[in-house]
Design a protein around this nucleic acid. Structure first.
Lengths: 124, 124, 124, 124
DNA sequence: GTGGTCTAGACCACC
DNA sequence: GTGGTCTAGACCACA
């Protein structure tokens, strides 16, 4: 694993985002137990403190649940995870649309640029 | 104007981004002279220092040019601006694609989400 | 029974509090024998260890008494239980009063808020 | 100031609660700037880190607002503060009612205990 | 000067 | 073993 962190963003945010992606992508299943904070600290090569902070964010979103002495678990709430998946997609699409429209690009330009990117990615 | 700045991002970056958007969107024409730093400081309600930093970024990208005693000007290099416009579009589309694919979304999902957003925006 | 424990508080404290409530509320009578620790462990779905710790607290308060080979019993001391009942009521009322006065609420506000709550609860 | 912290509760929670009380009680006015984190750290005799954590909670509740390089401010949203004041009162009253009813106390007992406490406090 | 991030390391309660 | 809290101290970007 050992992410190469971008130096301009807080590490704990990058870890939180990474975990969120893994969960939404299905690398972790609902109800799964996460590695212990100490283990994740070694995996990501950061302090346990930093992991703690990252996971706190996901817990606030309801994605994680903590059992005081057993560890942290992906929520078993399947509906929440599905909703989250949809929300993320919509939110990202909306943010990108908003930004590019502000740049003065037309809907056609935006759509065509995205299609190009997706074709490029698919063919890899 | 008087942007409402997001409190968690450096103001000078937000101003730089805003200027860049205005330029790419065509609110400023190639060769146009910018308002003085002092004026912009009043417009944006920040210290001249902050404006200075923001414009420095744009100058590094070649979008602006400083004439020692006359002020700062949008580059007259039309080709550069066109190229920049294309670069921004491609870069944003690529970043979004990369991120959403990492989330495990399919090309179809991504394209359809974006179409939905664009329809929503158009109809307004 | 099978309490749904709050994940952020020690389970043994939650069990102790629950037992105390049951005793004060009269669900157990003075002199009654408690279920065995093993049974209670199954009822509460925790380890016997945890039950042990919870009951220890009640024993320290004098609410329980252990007979070496027979099990644990609610104290037969009726006066103690009555006194305990009064103490709990006073202590909780005092704590709430202290806190709300520190928030700057007036006696009238506090009293009226409590009346409202009690009316709401009664009508259910 | 220099609170005497209860040893069984996290200090940062106690500080957060204390600040919230001060704000609701009106010791800080809407829009007021808080002392710097470093100053508060000295006042409360804890690490800046701990203050940071406490204030983060209030920020999540919308009570505080951070200006990146200027400090932290009480929200100027008067309505929010009034709403908060009411919410706190209702919430505390509800929690106490719920608990005491679970103990088997009658509405009359609860109300009378609270009246006694308030009389005691008033006469001081 | 301000807030924010991160580390290293300690200590704790709980189960 | 688990998560949680706290300190001391360093470093950074921003205005």
């Amino acid at each position: 694993m050992a992410l190469s962190f971008q130096p301009d963003k807080p590490i704990y945010l990058q870890i939180a985002a990474h975990m969120k992606r893994e969960i939404i992508a299905g690398s972790y299943q609902p109800g799964d137990r996460l590695p212990s904070i100490r283990d994740m600290a070694m995996i990501y090569e950061v302090t346990p403190n930093t992991i703690q902070r990252a996971l706190q964010l996901l817990e606030q979103e309801g994605i994680l649940r903590t059992e005081r002495t057993n560890g942290k678990f992906i929520t078993a709430d399947d509906a929440l995870l599905r909703r989250l998946r949809g929300d993320v997609l919509r939110e990202r699409a909306a943010a990108m649309t908003r930004e590019l429209l502000a740049y003065g690009f037309s809907s056609e330009e935006i759509l065509s640029a995205l299609s190009d990117e997706l074709k490029g990615a698919d063919s890899q």
